[in-house]
């Protein structure tokens, strides 16, 4: 009886571990979307063409050059970036600010909410959410 009880306990523990793993798996998926947006924004402010290519959705491929060059006239960095997937997973909202410096003057671009799509198992940034 004791053995049965131990086996049952172990089964419950294993099951709960599975369940936890599953929950963590979902969180990982949402984190991936947020991470993709963070990766995209980081690439954009540093005019990193490879980074932008990696995270830009196929629907916006025509805008690739513009996305790469948009901040090329300024020195830009992101302060306090923290992104999280929104409910439903179609958008990611970011806190933080792009700070662009030109000629000694600062210009702030508060981060916002962005559309994301999953393409071939990878999350992609797909423009500002309407």
């Amino acid at each position: 009886m004791v053995r049965v009880f131990i086996l049952l306990l172990m089964a419950i523990l294993i099951a709960s571990c599975d369940s936890g793993a599953s929950t963590n798996g979902d969180a990982s998926a949402t984190d991936d979307a947020a991470a993709a947006v963070e990766g995209y924004l980081t690439a954009k402010v540093s005019n990193d063409a490879d980074g932008i290519r990696r995270y830009l959705c196929s629907a916006m491929e025509a805008d690739f050059d513009r996305e790469v060059q948009s901040f090329s006239g300024v020195e830009a960095e992101i302060e306090g970036m923290a992104c999280a997937s929104d409910e439903g997973g179609a958008t990611v909202t970011c806190e933080g600010t792009i700070v662009a410096v030109y000629g000694g003057e600062n210009r702030d671009f508060p981060l916002g909410t962005y559309s994301v799509v999953e393409e071939d198992g990878e999350w992609k940034w797909c423009g500002e959410a309407g």
Binding site: D65, R66, Q69, S70, F71, S72, G73, V74, A100, Y102, G103, E105, R107
Partner: peptide, 9 residues
Amino acid sequence: NEIGMASFS
């Protein structure tokens, strides 16, 4: 019309 703007931005 902003400082640092380019025709892309």
